[in-house]
Design a protein around this nucleic acid. Structure first.
Length: 192
DNA sequence: TGCCCGATTAACT
DNA sequence: GTTAATCGGGCAA
């Protein structure tokens, strides 16, 4: 059986945790799959929500590691993050894409599409497929409805610039599984 | 208070 | 390639 990830897994540099999550399994209410794409954000990073200090929205980022930070994106979508590092460092990993393995029927129904590659390939799509909302902001990642399992075996990881940001857009803090068909966007050829 | 813009997506041309 | 949908945060006034 895969090893269950505990909150201590997240109590490290966000730049160590992010690549370690590639290939891990995320289930939410029993629905989910393998993480294939994430991005790292740190409070010293101008692109991070926590850069300008605590607010009502980003309060969870300033708490201890191993909790879910869920925010509304463009007034429409939800985005799921895992808080990392000791309390106060306000860093988190944005979950951008998973390879669906469990609960495909539920995901197709919630998303309204049949193509596997369109179910969870993007932060907004993933949250719709897993039915993650603001209700889950602040929940611990080592308890229901979350189940996280460490990856098994070797995974080839690539890094590249993050998607959809304008500040610190040159930083290569997007991590993905090399060659995965479930990425929200391909990585630049130079990264492969 | 008002205005601009964003860690996005899908439906357009 | 372009744009609408849709709303809260952050900053200027």
């Amino acid at each position: 059986m895969p090893k269950r990830l505990t909150r201590s897994f997240f109590n490290r540099s966000v730049h160590e945790v992010a690549p370690d999550l590639i290939g891990a399994t995320l289930l939410f209410d029993g629905v989910g799959g393998r993480l294939v794409e994430v991005e790292a954000y740190h409070h010293t990073d101008p692109a991070a929500h926590s850069f300008r200090g605590p607010t009502d929205r980003n309060a969870v980022m300033f708490g201890p590691a191993g909790y879910a930070y869920v925010y509304r994106s463009y007034g429409i979508h939800w985005c799921l993050n895992f808080v990392c590092e000791p309390k106060g460092s306000a860093s988190a990993v944005l979950i951008r894409a998973i390879e669906p393995t469990t609960g495909l029927t539920a995901m197709r129904r919630r998303r309204g599409v049949a193509d596997e590659r369109l179910l969870c390939s993007g932060p907004g799509r993933l949250c719709e497929a897993l039915r993650v909302t603001a209700l889950h902001n602040g929940l611990a990642l080592d308890g229901a409805p979350f189940e996280l399992f460490a990856r098994e075996g070797d995974v080839e990881i690539v890094a590249g610039p993050r998607i959809g940001i304008t500040k610190a857009a040159d930083k290569p803090w997007r991590y993905g599984e090399k060659g995965s068909r479930f990425l929200s966007k391909p990585f630049p050829a130079a990264a492969c």
